[in-house]
Design a protein around this nucleic acid. Structure first.
Lengths: 258, 258
DNA sequence: CGAAGGCTTGATAGACCTCAAACACAGTGG
DNA sequence: CCACTGTGTTTGAGGTCTATCAAGCCTTCG
């Protein structure tokens, strides 16, 4: 009864922990309901009390909130394999919304089924928890961007992030990838006006750091873009599972922890 | 063998879930090492690989990161009862630092002990997970602040947040509370210069929304401040544990979820 | 072919930053 | 006991980054 829509989830886990056959089977046996959604469709909305989570199978999603003055703040973008509303397992009321930004395929998985999966497979539960922690880590990096970086590197930073996230799930093609996010949406994500987003992109282009056309982005030289945007990928924690570990990196001076 | 430093943790849990005697005992039996730290002391630092978590018992902490240009971005403030580095249970390398902002008392709990506690008390594990999700929710709200609010309401919003967080752990006194955060630190948190923070605070004062002096803050009329800062406390999820629940709030139009 | 959405560019305005300096207050040492 | 120092707050003036308003252009699509 396993559903192909669950493959991205298995693939994602396998980049982090090695799944046993039983674990793999447990995931693939999750009950799912797959839906094909148009662009700009809300999946969950502020105030909702979801009873299921959604796994993005194909497409792009964003997490956003509207303010009383009509401005929209996008707080994250998601790529296939992500489960952006995993948080609804433990938090009852949504304080923001999730929506597609292009036509997308999502798989809905009931909370009950996820709860059982986690109860019976603690390692999977930990991987889910870890996933939400990396989400949080990305939020923190956006705080840094919005608080401390200028428009130019804010946008460069976002492009680096998207590239690495897509690369991690095998959705890049060499140094280029689908980037169907409009300049208006980039503005909503970076806290900039569309006009200024455009001017900053023009600059990034002029520097030869990005090639952006027709929903596709190419990064001729990732190192140079990372340097320009002061991008450090540590916060994405792409390198795999934590295991034990109490070593400390050498520091110039010790912190108070022993 | 139970240590008084763990009481804030028990108290915190009890505002969320009702603990059984066994659960309470399990928490109070956690091995801890308590430390009294001076102001501006790093607890964990970017690059560290912690083998323990820290519970804030008394004082104030912040989460921050330095940028290459010397700017500091503060990403969160913490109050007694918080365990800001719970994430280190599942994420090996710290991508930012934690520090005291005033002299503080913290209790260090080894990862091993926390892991055992969680394994043997799934409800406690879930409460911890939920805690990190609320942390993430707060990060998202900061993204909204930095991306979409002006200086005036950004600062007002922060003050509302601090007030409610302190009130939830019983550290307010009527409508006033200890607020030992300097204007420079507020600037590092809100992405504003010290000068502009000061000017905005002056305005908030002039409007009679806050009284701020000698490390103490009073909010004469919380409703009015919330209104001015467009503050909605939903994101703090102070109302307690999620349980089952699949109801949906009435919405004007349905989202795609069934 | 007209409409709609997205991209691009120019001009003006405003929010916020930087530099600078004065003031207040607590802690330190002679 | 009183300078002295350091940290934090406050205020002024000028400059910059980014927003807003406006308009033209391009592509897609019914």
């Amino acid at each position: 009864m396993s559903h192909a829509a669950l493959n991205p989830l298995v693939r994602r886990f396998e980049t982090i922990i090695s799944l046993s056959e039983d674990e793999k089977k447990a995931i693939l046996n999750l009950p799912v309901r797959v839906a094909d959604l148009r662009a700009d469709a809300d999946i969950v909305r502020e105030g909702d009390r979801p009873s299921q989570c959604c796994l993005l199978v194909e497409g792009f999603l964003c997490r956003y909130k509207y303010l009383s003055d009509g401005k929209r703040q996008i707080m994250a973008f998601y790529v296939p394999g992500d489960i952006p509303d995993l948080l609804s397992l433990h938090i009852d009321v949504m304080d923001h919304s999730l929506a597609t930004i292009i036509p997308s395929k999502v798989a809905f998985i009931p909370h009950d089924a996820l709860g059982n999966l986690i109860d019976q497979n603690p390692r999977i539960g930990n991987a889910f928890w870890r996933d939400t922690l990396i989400d949080a880590s990305t939020f923190r990096e956006w705080i840094v961007s919005l608080g401390s970086r200028d428009a130019y590197s804010r946008i460069g930073h976002l492009i680096c992030e998207m590239f690495l996230k897509l690369k991690a799930v095998g959705l890049t093609n060499g140094n280029s990838f689908n980037f169907p996010i409009t300049q208006g949406e980039i503005g909503d994500a970076t806290g900039l006006s569309t006009v200024h987003v455009n001017r900053s992109i023009m600059e990034l282009r002029k520097e030869g750091l990005i090639i952006l056309e027709k929903g596709r982005c190419t990064i001729p030289d990732l190192r140079r873009l990372e340097e320009a945007a002061k991008f450090d990928p540590t916060y994405l924690h792409l390198t795999g599972e934590r295991r034990g570990g109490n070593g400390r990196l050498a520091g110039d001076r010790p912190s108070v922890a022993p």
